[in-house]
Amino acid sequence: MLPESDQRLFFLLQRAAHNLRMVADRRCLAVSGVTTAQLGALFAVRDQPGLTQQDLARTLGLGQSAVTPLVARLTTAGLVTKSTHPEQHRAVALDLTAAGAAALHTAGPEIDRFNAEVRDLLGGNGFAEAAAALHKLAHWHPGNG
């Protein structure tokens, strides 16, 4: 049984998320020059070429106010391009550049190493159980079960 002070799930989730993000950001920045937040956006743009910033915000679970500067940094770095959306007059379409694809490719082995270390830390079943539990929490809406 954990001490009562360690049963503060929200605090522990926040602390774990912060620690994981700091370690992963440091590693990804070192090998590819981008943060994990930027990598998440690059993966989304790669997987859905031409998506809008609003679609990107929804995919990443972020507000528009967080996505606008994120996209600005990615375009300034030459990792993503913005163009007129073919169907939505006020929206822009986002596409990955060759440099963006290269950043994803370069970060891939480090992401794999990071995930392998977390799997080792938690154990095979522990990793799967943690991933399943976090997926449930990420999609939980109080009152809906």
Rank of each mutant, 00 (worst) to 15 (best):
M1W: 02
L2F: 13
L2R: 03
P3I: 00
E4I: 03
E4L: 10
S5R: 14
S5E: 12
Q7V: 02
Q7W: 02
L9T: 04
F10A: 05
F10R: 12
F11E: 13
L12H: 14
L13S: 05
R15K: 05
A16F: 11
H18W: 07
H18T: 11
N19P: 00
L20Y: 15
R21W: 11
R21V: 10
R21P: 01
M22A: 13
V23D: 08
A24M: 12
A24E: 14
D25T: 10
R26C: 08
C28A: 15
C28Y: 08
C28T: 13
L29D: 11
A30W: 08
S32P: 10
S32Q: 13
T35N: 10
A37G: 07
Q38I: 01
A41V: 06
L42D: 05
L42T: 07
L42V: 05
F43T: 04
V45G: 11
R46A: 15
R46C: 08
R46S: 15
D47I: 08
D47M: 12
G50A: 06
G50V: 12
T52L: 05
T52N: 05
Q53I: 01
Q53G: 11
D55V: 03
D55N: 12
D55M: 15
L56N: 03
A57D: 05
A57K: 11
R58C: 04
R58I: 11
T59C: 11
L60F: 07
G61L: 09
L62C: 04
L62A: 10
G63W: 11
G63A: 14
Q64W: 08
S65Y: 08
V67M: 09
T68Q: 04
P69M: 01
A72G: 02
R73H: 12
T76M: 02
T76E: 10
A77K: 12
G78V: 01
K82D: 01
S83T: 14
T84D: 13
T84V: 12
P86K: 08
P86N: 09
E87T: 14
R90K: 14
R90L: 14
R90C: 03
R90Q: 10
A91K: 03
A93H: 05
L94D: 06
L94T: 13
D95I: 00
A99V: 06
A101H: 07
T106G: 01
A107C: 10
A107D: 13
E110Y: 06
D112G: 07
F114I: 12
A116N: 08
E117S: 05
E117R: 09
E117V: 03
V118K: 01
R119E: 14
L121G: 01
L122E: 05
G123F: 03
G124E: 09
N125F: 04
F127L: 01
A128D: 15
A131C: 06
A131T: 13
A131R: 07
L134T: 06
A138D: 13
A138S: 15
H139T: 11
H139C: 02
H139M: 00
W140N: 00
W140L: 07
H141Q: 03
G145R: 00
G145C: 00
